[in-house]
Design a protein around this nucleic acid. Sequence first.
DNA 1: TCTGGGGTCCTTAATCTA
DNA 2: TCTGTAGATTAAGGACCC
Length: 395
Amino acid sequence: MTEAQQTDRWIAHVDLDAFYASCEQRDNPEYRGRPVVVGALPGRRGVVAAASYEAREFGIRSAMPISDAYRRCPDAVYLRPDMRKYSQVSRQVFAVIKTITPVVEQASIDEAYLDISGLEKLLGPPAAIGQELKRRIHEATRLTASVGLGPNRLIAKLGSDYQKPDGLTVVRPDEVLDFLAPMPVTNLRGVGRRTSRHFDELGIRTVAELRAAAPGALEQKLGPRAAASFRRQADGIASDAVVPGRARKSISKERTFNEDVTDAIKLHDQLRELAAGVARIARRENLAGQVITLKIRFTGFETHTRQKKLPQATHDERVLLQTAWQLYTDSDLPRKAVRLIGVGISHWSDNSSQQADLFDSATEHANDDRLLDTIDNVTDRFGSGKLQLGVNRRQ
DNA sequence: TCTGGGGTCCTTAATCTA
DNA sequence: TCTGTAGATTAAGGACCC
């Protein structure tokens, strides 16, 4: 027996099918049977967040540039995401899932891991539990889900992906190796574009080929840690821990401009809006963080981040804005038009909110002149044409 | 060719510190 | 006190995921 087979655990992975698009088709009967693309609107910058199965027939996939999607299917229904709606449906789904077991880990808005070990006496064999899960979700929301069941998270996840939509896949411990063998290595966790290229160069396409690969070559290409991780996955070895209520580690907001920006006032205004958004969430969740991160993407997709650790944790938008702006103005970043700007906060203090209050009051009177100074500082970077704006503001 | 937004985790390099 | 070093921390970037 391999390690993967020495287990009596059963993990389920539930994945709602084309979640955003399905919500829209459910609520708008006129969209049913039509290709639906949720994401950016054609003509603007952005990508596909979700594509209905009808849209997928045109080769439209999530994360594809919206311009590309439009070229493939100009007649599709293009919609902006309605996150409020999807969050509400998601809450409904999770409430239903918790009627099966409380040991549920939310992996995303439309995905969950469940530890269903030991539920057989109550609900029947794993396949019956999976069926029941799907039935209850559909009854409550009229949405379909795909479910995978296996001895650990990896197998459950690959299982839910195996048959879609509305699928149910059960992989018993003694079937794990055969289940994995023919799969493309790109299905493994942590294989994206770059790693995929490395596998290509090694002539490895399937999990079976990965299993047979020379250890030295793999380590040289991917590094010792990644190589070991992929080897374990190839043998079906993975965590079976389902951790309910994982705490978030950071909050961030970013915005891509529809056209690249060189105007410092515009940048600062956008940053203020983002900082306010981050601060609002932090306060609502009673979190205060010590590390502020500025993210900036220039023309040409050149992306940089700059961080600063504050002496005290904060969730004050003024501190966030001031710090992020300073990171931009004081840094060695190039003088280029800005495509995206973002701000984040992380590294929570233990007694978050109390400390934050103290620091906030200490910085209460951070004055606006200082901000205007730095705005001028940046407008200088872009030449005299923009300097006028900074001066105007003072009047 | 064109690449959102909100996250997590890993690697690496520089710096601090015991 | 000096020096070398190992380990921790910080910062930046990259890969990946949904």
